[in-house]
């Protein structure tokens, strides 16, 4: 066991970790930030996506030790300062971009990373970007629509509200 320290959602966080502790486990078990979900063990589902030093990563495929000294943001840190949903979260609610909610934290974190690099992505760019985020509930329709809406694009012509 060794001490590992990082900044999580703007606050200093530290804990004891074995070398084999994953960042996802550190967040969930040491810090109680259970919004980061683990849906697979082959680094494909993306339910665990968080940002480390501003970049989207899969928290289940990174050791806690690797994040030593890093700035980590998770779904728990995404809402506005007053607690209201941020633009992406609000768009997901407005456009029914989630059902069971399990993939949702990773989807929101991936969407945030996408929009940071590409403020007005096309439908095709969004679909391609979500290659590493699986959703089994929504058929992706309303997720893609929500991300387009969050980027300020008119989605009224997309079928079915």
């Amino acid at each position: 066991m060794a001490k590992v320290s990082m900044t999580v959602n703007g606050k200093a966080a530290s804990g004891e970790a074995e070398g084999r502790m994953l960042l996802s486990s550190f967040l969930r078990e040491e810090l109680g930030l259970t919004g980061t979900h683990v849906g697979c063990d082959t680094s494909q589902c993306g339910a665990c996506v968080v940002h480390v030093d501003g970049k989207a990563v899969k928290a289940c495929t990174m050791l806690a030790m690797e994040a030593e000294g890093s700035e980590v943001s998770t779904i728990e840190g995404q809402a506005n300062a007053d607690g209201s949903l941020n633009v992406i979260q609000q768009a997901f609610q407005d456009h029914h971009g989630l059902q069971c909610g399990f993939c949702t934290p990773g989807m929101v974190m991936s969407a945030a990373a996408l929009l940071k690099d590409n403020p007005k992505p096309s439908e095709a760019e969004i679909r391609h970007y979500l290659e590493g985020n699986l959703c089994r509930c929504t058929g992706y329709h309303n997720i893609v629509k929500a991300i387009m809406a969050a980027s300020g694009q008119d989605v009224s012509s997309i079928a079915a509200e």
Partner: peptide
């Protein structure tokens, strides 16, 4: 290669 999160690591 992979997906955006994989490419970042």
């Amino acid at each position: 290669i992979g997906d955006p999160a994989v490419r970042n690591r």
